[in-house]
Design a protein around this nucleic acid. Structure first.
Lengths: 217, 217
DNA sequence: TAGATTGTTAATCGATTAACAATC
DNA sequence: TAGATTGTTAATCGATTAACAATC
């Protein structure tokens, strides 16, 4: 049934938002919805919604619409949210701590095994139940526990140094909060999702300026 | 000279990354670069680079290429990075604290005035020099200090409650870390930049799954 | 001047929207 | 059956890439 191969990244990036809206509907006791209604709610076109859902095989029904609960779970399945991919977090500064305590990894397809940092003062402590270990022990740890994903909450230079060694230790996916462009590295099998907060803020800066210009005009 | 109006958001979103690479070149003492060289470095096409830069009026020179320093500063100017837009941060949980201490607002076009939260235990303290004030005083504060941008590090429901009152108080831009979709609100003059960390992680979850499927295939 | 590389126009590619026949 | 709404094909729109004349 599922024909998931080769679905474009634009579609994938919309799935979490669809799921969010469907979750809200579910909470409000809505059991069916048409692409038209959902489109209005989400500020999209009904065409786009039908096209998007059909990338994965039709789970609507003509004349009826979509079953909210089925669709919600289907999207979760497509995203692999019940897939406990073992992960490690590297860098326990402000950002690393926030990510460790703020994100619900288990509900997003991952299982966080632990946190690594070089600051001796915090080794042995834990955050949100995740133990903080010394970065020097990460090699040993990876050989034993085989994490597949690494979260990089490190400065540029340190991320640059660590990326290749981590790949050599079996890491195949990065959630990258550093400014180092991992994608530029040789290995094409590595998947990377970047969160460049500063870039995001600069984009906002541009938009605020545009806003001003419009007012003047 | 600048013809910045109506530049597409795809182009704008690439500007911070260009600036980052140009900054690196500058650090390494490189003074000129051709679109071809930069394309190789960044994994883009030289065509795209020339198209992008030309959205803002040609600052290259035929037969020579681009002056790295001039281009770096030009991009900063386009993004409005020296524009101290007054901003407030709302929600001083893990994420809010990380944003307040991790982001260099001054170098990104903003000036953070202070932080608001409802937890009495932390009111009066400060983070990274920014005072923490009670959320009940935000109305008064906005009337006096006139911030234009608000950073929302709040749960869904609280963000939903606060968005419209903040707009009424003169906020015209949001850096939104909550899951509430501010864009869905009536006012078209409001600009919003969303940082949906959970969505980002779910996208990564999907990609890791695809990775597996490919190996099996 | 000759070589290099831009700025810009044209061609291609992909993503979004519109239209409508299929069908519940 | 009639009405509604999907799934899917075709049309449009926008973004990326290719090509090349302009020019430093």
């Amino acid at each position: 049934m599922p024909k998931e191969s080769g679905v474009s990244v634009s579609v994938i990036k919309r799935l979490p938002r669809y799921r969010r809206f469907l979750g809200d509907l579910l909470t409000n006791g809505v059991h069916r919805i048409s692409s038209g209604e959902l489109a209005t709610k989400m500020g999209l076109t009904s065409s786009q919604i039908r096209q998007d859902f059909n990338c994965f095989g039709g789970f609507g029904q003509q004349g009826y619409g979509y079953n909210v609960e089925a669709l919600y779970h289907e999207i979760g399945r497509i995203l692999g949210l019940s897939n406990n991919i073992p992960a490690i977090l590297i860098g326990c500064g402000n950002l690393g701590r926030a990510v460790a305590s703020h994100i619900n990894f288990n509900e997003r397809g991952f299982h966080l095994l632990g946190i690594f940092d070089s600051n001796p003062a915090i080794i042995g402590r834990s955050i949100n139940g995740y133990p903080i270990m010394h970065i020097d022990t990460v090699t040993e740890f990876c050989k034993e526990k085989r994490p597949r994903m690494a979260i990089l909450c490190l400065p540029n230079q340190e991320a640059r140094k660590l990326a290749q060694p981590l790949i050599d230790l079996g890491i195949t996916a990065f959630w990258n909060f550093s400014h180092f462009d991992i994608k530029m590295m040789q290995n094409p099998n590595i998947v990377v999702e970047n969160v460049h907060l500063s870039d995001s803020l600069m984009t906002l800066s541009y938009m605020v300026n545009e806003q001003k210009n419009k007012k003047i005009k």
